[in-house]
């Protein structure tokens, strides 16, 4: 197991957002995380990515206990997160955004100057790898389409050479062709031996790319299924709690 969360509890005031959640991702595996709105998916990945600190429970990365006190810690442990809101700085260029927080430096007399040349070159490589087309790598991110901005966010995650990549609703706002690109990219990541956690509402996408599916409901992880051995109906039933209704009715 590359990544393991055991007994995670997270409370906000009187609300228990995560109630003793166990979650794990294997090496080179695509794990889908599904659940209805308010089930706790976003909170779980924010905890995974270091934006929240859990109130209880442990996190292990490649067998070692880790504690993330900030998103920076998570990045440094090899977890790259692509948030639903993308977390891009609109009035900054593609290059600047991809390297935000991990700029390539060229120290002169101990002062860490920006190495713009190296960053531009790497940006070109990344965009080519992802087959993302932008008007210019110097254009502002806010002037680009949803798919291009998604591409920039993915490029940023790719740039980090991470072990685990978390993607929160990556295809939600994209056109059909762009969705295809994202799904192909996820498969590519798997062939490279990286692990992916994918949150998605789109059961079709989930069944196309994932190896296993974790279902969350009311702050708990109620089921983990192997994608090949389950059906969309079963997953949807778990998400909506149909089985609970059935159990109560019988």
């Amino acid at each position: 197991m590359v990544f393991k969360m055991i007994g995670i509890v997270k409370r906000f005031g009187g609300l228990t957002a995560l109630d003793h959640v166990d979650f794990e991702v294997g090496s080179g595996e695509v794990m889908a995380l599904v659940g209805d709105n308010g089930a706790g998916k976003s909170t779980l990945i924010k905890t995974m990515s270091g934006a929240h600190a859990p109130d209880e429970g442990t996190i292990e990365m490649e067998g070692k206990l880790v504690r993330f006190r900030s998103p920076q810690d998570a990045w440094e442990s090899g977890i790259a997160t692509i948030f639903q809101e993308l977390a891009l700085a609109g009035k900054m260029t593609v290059v600047d955004n991809i390297f935000l927080g991990r700029e390539i430096r060229k120290p002169v007399l101990g002062i860490p100057f920006l190495d713009r040349q190296a960053m531009r070159k790497r940006t070109g490589e990344l965009l080519q790898q992802l087959d993302v087309h932008v008007p210019s790598i110097d254009s502002w991110v806010e002037s680009m389409s949803g798919g291009q901005r998604q591409g920039v966010a993915i490029a940023r995650a790719l740039n980090m050479d991470a072990r685990l990549i978390i993607m929160d609703e990556p295809t939600a706002a994209l056109a059909v062709a762009e969705v295809r690109k994202v799904l192909e990219f996820i498969k590519t990541l798997r062939t490279q031996g990286k692990s992916v956690v994918l949150i998605s509402h789109n059961i079709q996408d989930v069944f196309e790319v994932s190896d296993r599916i974790s279902v969350m409901r009311h702050g708990r992880c109620i089921a983990v299924r192997e994608t090949a051995k389950t059906t969309p109906q079963e997953i949807i039933g778990l998400i909506t709690g149909a089985h609970e209704v059935r159990a109560a009715a019988s």
Binding site: A51, F83, R156
Partner: peptide, 9 residues
């Protein structure tokens, strides 16, 4: 918020 999420102090 975005700056925090990408790990800027």
């Amino acid at each position: 918020p975005s700056a925090r999420l990408v790990g800027i102090n």
